[in-house]
Amino acid sequence: MNEPGDRVRARSRREHRVSGGALACVLMAVTLSGCSDALQSTEQHRLDAPRTVNGDPAKGRDLVAAVGCGVCHTIPGIPGATGIVGPPLTTFARRTYIAGIVPNEPTALSAWVSNAPSLLPQTAMPRLPISHDDATHIVAFLYTLQK
């Protein structure tokens, strides 16, 4: 194994937690710290309900593969999507907040996918060359990630 690489990677994870997601952490902590189990399960129930999204999840999946989202994210169902730069998108459909700042709902997510900095200027996730329609398909795909 390549030790320098490993060390660098380990550092990358650590720093990421501290700096990149600092805001997210704070918000998450605030939101979740008071949650009781009961509350959580109601929340869960609301999020599990199918969201009405016009996009085609299969198309969205292809787009996620074609754009290369997996370079930064771990995404179930996308070969090679084992990125460690951003948060894993496993169970993304049940995620409460996008990047810990805006509630996870289709319009916001669509905007986030194509132009994350417009919602959170400090983010490391760049603006991506994804059209509005494509973003809708990607959102549809992301909402299939239940487990």
């Binding site: 194994m1 997996g70 070969p79 090679g80 999507a81 084992t82």
Partner: peptide, 11 residues
């Protein structure tokens, strides 16, 4: 068996 699999590393 699968593309871009991370089951076994390159080493």
């Amino acid at each position: 068996a699968m593309p871009e699999s991370r089951l076994i590393g390159h080493a």
